[in-house]
Amino acid sequence: MKKISITLTVNGQKKTVEVTPNERLIDVLRYRLDLRSVKAGCLKGECGSCLVLMNGKPVKSCLILAAEADGSEITTVEGLGSLNKPALIQKAFIEAFGYQCGFCTSGFILLGHWILENMPDASEEEIKEILNGILCRCTGYKQIIEAIKLAQKWKRERK
C-alpha cells in the first residue's frame, strides 16, 4: 500500500500529512491533526457526528478518503471560535441550550454556521431540512433549531 502525501488547509493552517489509501478524512483529522471534535458515531454517513466543512460545504468525513481531500480547505468547530472569541453560532448554542451530551454538537454547530453564512434568512422549515442530515439523541432538536434562529436574529440585528 503506497503512502500518499496530502496537504490540507485546516482551520486556516496548511498541514501536510502522509496517509495510507485506506485512511479516511475523519481518521486524519482526529488522530493525525488531533481535532477531536470530529466524532465517529456510525461510520456509515447516518449520524453526522463527523461533519466538517470541506471547501465551504458540509460533508460527512467518515465517507471521504483522506487522499480525496488533498488540497482542500477544512473547517472544524475548533476553527470557528473560542470561549474568549466565540463565533456567533457558538454563542447562540450556549444561550439557547442547543446541546446536551455534546457528541453530535460539532456537526450541528457547523451546519448552523453554514446556514448563517449561506442562507442567513433560512426559514424554520429550511433549517430543519438541512439539519435532517444529522442525528441528535438528547435534545429533540428544538433547542438546536432555536439556537440557529437566535444566531440568525443576532446577525440581522448587527447589520
Binding site: 475548533e78 457558538q90 446541546y99 455534546g102
Partner: peptide, 10 residues
C-alpha cells in the same frame, strides 16, 4: 461550554 468549542474530551 467547552462542548461548543471542540475542547471537550470524551
Amino acid at each position: 461550554v467547552d462542548k461548543v468549542f471542540g475542547d471537550a474530551i470524551f
